[in-house]
Design a protein around this nucleic acid. Structure first.
Lengths: 217, 217
DNA sequence: ACGCGCTATTGAATCAAAGTCAATAGTCGA
DNA sequence: TCGACTATTGACTTTGATTCAATAGCGCGT
């Protein structure tokens, strides 16, 4: 059903192993590991989890299947690590902007977020769509990422735990940001500033709807 | 990695085949088909796609593996049909309320939606989380479902195609509804009416943020 | 009632892809 | 230069999806 040929993606779709040296290239553990994660991010951005076989991945990396298992205990673990790395990048790249204060802070944070969305469109889509069907670990990972993003905002509203309704509302807003971002990538009908403006306004509305007076703006 | 025992879910986790009659029970095509879809909805609500093997499903249905393939060309197709049915139910159950007018209409529609969320919690979660990693057909199916839901609302704002920004904003709102619903199910910290109120307010805010004056409210 | 054909149903065989492991071979320190 | 350590391999095992020829309920015509 999936791919007509033996594997949906042969030499054509998947990057070939490093050009020349077709010998055993022995790398340092960390190098290889991050090479594999890097590659995984690319591959999973273009192909769904079970479109990609371990053999495909190994071939694309120019290594044997066995080696993949030397680095990751299972395909699933490998996938989870790839997602973890992507989530980490999202957190990182949107971090710088969050140190400023007040209005500019929000502005900057959203800009950074949309930068990421824009520049890593395919990875972003793969990331938020969550890949594997409800793998508990992936779900948890994504949820943790969203929490981190949320907390940056919450911390600007109050130092304490937010009341339940506000938490719920903010969680909803994150969902809004993700859905809007996906739709935006898909159509590109609206200028980016307009999207940012929309998300900003919606955040304010969210906070107010939760019965809290927004401190800034 | 996944289940310790041969299959993560043996007789314990999965409903047993129909009590008595352990002979070939020959059913009408439509009966069997919907029995299988019904069962699938339950199973996939509790277990992820690849936690469930075809054998598990067949065993739970009290039929042979081969018969499943008589009804559905592949496990994936089976899954897609199950999702389609669940999406259909969501659309159905929230449909009655959408024929009324104005404020009550929105109220009623959201109530119906939250009824579904509440009563079919597990299926709802499985549904919106999308199951399989970005299976194109599933993604498309869910997107179509969201569009249907959105259009019920849009049609009350204007008869025409909504401007791009409004479309985008409403798509975002749907994401907000889904995220908030999931979070609500997960924690149950907030009374249901409060959630409905939040979603209502957010819809108004969404429409306004998109630069449109909401016709009602 | 009775047999006959249609097709729902089965179970064993096939195939693909995940996961294992003993054997091989770079590389680095002495 | 020589081991020793371990990254790397490839062939094997296992698991689970998919196929298919053979079997057997059930309704229909007589």
């Amino acid at each position: 059903m999936w791919g007509g040929s033996p594997l949906g993606l042969s030499s054509a779709a998947v990057p070939s192993p490093p050009r020349s040296s077709r010998e055993r290239a022995r790398l340092q553990v960390d190098e290889r590991r991050s090479q594999l994660l890097e590659l995984g991010l690319q591959l999973f951005s273009d192909h769904s989890y079970d479109e990609l076989s371990i053999d495909d991945i190994a071939r694309a990396a120019g290594i044997s299947k066995g080696l993949l298992y030397h680095y990751f205990p299972s395909k699933r673990d490998y996938y989870v690590e790839v997602v973890r790395r992507a989530a980490g990048q999202l957190i990182e790249r949107t971090d710088a902007a969050s140190q400023e204060v007040s209005v500019e802070a929000l502005h900057g944070a959203l800009d950074a977020y949309l930068d990421f969305v824009d520049q890593h469109a395919r990875s972003y889509v793969a990331l938020v769509r969550g890949g594997i069907g409800s793998d508990p670990e992936v779900v948890q990972l994504l949820e943790a990422t969203r929490r981190t993003l949320t907390e940056r905002i919450v911390s600007r509203i109050s130092a304490d735990e937010p009341p339940p309704l506000l938490r719920l509302a903010l969680r909803g807003w994150i969902g809004l940001v993700e859905s809007a971002s996906l739709d935006w990538l898909d159509r590109r009908e609206v200028p980016r500033e307009q999207l940012r403006g929309l998300l900003e306004q919606m955040l304010v509305a969210t906070i107010m709807a939760a019965g809290v007076t927004p401190p800034v703006l």
